[in-house]
Amino acid sequence: MSTFEIFLTAIALSMDAFAVAVCKGLSLDRKNFRLSALTGLYFGGFQALMPVIGFFLAGIFSDKINSFDHWIAFILLGIIGANMIKESRDTSCEVSSPSFSFVVMTGLAIATSIDALAVGVTYSFLKVNILYAAIITGITTFVISTAGVYIGNIFGAKYKSKAEFAGGLVLVLLGTKILLQHLGIL
């Protein structure tokens, strides 16, 4: 997987966090850099950690599934992408609680990074440098989530569903590319 593909995957994974960050921004009375950066740290940190966990979990089983790992990558990315596309139809902000407490933010960060755990499994099959991918994913999510709080505060939920749709589409296309490469079509 190239640096560009890792970066695209990081952007796609960041879209759930972006959508939640937009909703958090809606709950603020005014722009607040500290809370925006805090949101970015939570989401970016978990988005960086989860692929590492998935990578090492998959490493335990990699020798047993090496012959069909490309199908697993295709299915995981396809399911995650399709789910994001489906969720993009929901324009509400159910997580617009004004609380930025440890419990609330940790819960949201875990919920938005479960997809990254599955992508970490895919990274293991593709022999991606996990530290490099985790750093790119964490930084990308930090920037996008921090911006998401500002965007939510200024513009409302206007961009939430479009971002989720685009992220889902990117993951589906990357999964398809991985499968086609392993089948020798690309």
Rank of each mutant, 00 (worst) to 15 (best):
L35V: 01
D90W: 08
N129W: 10
S96V: 07
F4E: 11
L8D: 05
M1V: 06
A82K: 14
E94V: 15
A17G: 13
S124R: 15
I151R: 03
K86P: 11
T141V: 11
I65M: 09
A163I: 01
L76D: 00
G148E: 00
K177R: 13
N153D: 04
A19Y: 01
Y42L: 03
L117G: 00
M50D: 02
V119Y: 05
L174C: 07
S101M: 08
H182L: 03
I6T: 06
F46H: 02
Y150K: 13
V20S: 02
A37L: 09
R34K: 15
A82V: 12
L169M: 13
S96F: 11
Y42R: 04
S101H: 10
I114N: 08
T112S: 13
L49H: 06
T140I: 00
F155W: 12
N153V: 01
D63W: 10
L179A: 07
Q47R: 01
T122D: 12
S62A: 14
F61P: 11
D69L: 10
D63T: 14
Q47F: 01
F46N: 02
D16P: 12
G167Y: 03
A147C: 14
L108W: 02
Q181R: 15
S62N: 14
Y150H: 15
I130G: 14
L183R: 13
L171K: 05
Y159E: 05
A37M: 14
I53G: 05
V170W: 05
F100N: 04
E5D: 11
L77D: 00
L41R: 06
V143D: 10
W71P: 09
F102S: 01
D69A: 12
T146W: 05
I80S: 05
N83S: 15
C23H: 03
V121A: 08
A111T: 02
L108E: 04
A157H: 13
A157L: 08
D29W: 10
T3Q: 13
F155S: 12
V20E: 03
E94F: 13
A37T: 11
I114G: 04
T9C: 11
N153S: 05
I151Y: 09
I130M: 12
F46Q: 02
F165N: 06
T146D: 06
F155I: 12
N83C: 13
F43V: 02
A58L: 08
I75T: 10
S2W: 05
L41C: 10
L171H: 03
V119A: 06
S124H: 15
A133P: 08
L49N: 03
N83I: 04
F56R: 07
L183N: 10
A111G: 11
V121S: 07
L13M: 07
L41V: 09
I110H: 09
I60H: 15
K31F: 15
M50P: 04
A111Q: 10
V170I: 15
F165R: 13
V104M: 15
G120R: 03
I85G: 12
G59D: 01
T9N: 06
G167D: 00
I114W: 12
I185K: 11
F56A: 04
G168L: 02
E164Y: 13
A111D: 00
T3V: 11
I6Y: 04
Q47Y: 00
L108P: 03
N153L: 07
T112M: 06
S67D: 15
T39H: 06
I130C: 12
V52D: 08
D69P: 10
S97Y: 10
T39F: 10
G168T: 02
G107L: 03
A118T: 04
D63S: 15
A134F: 04
F55Q: 07
A58K: 04
T137N: 12
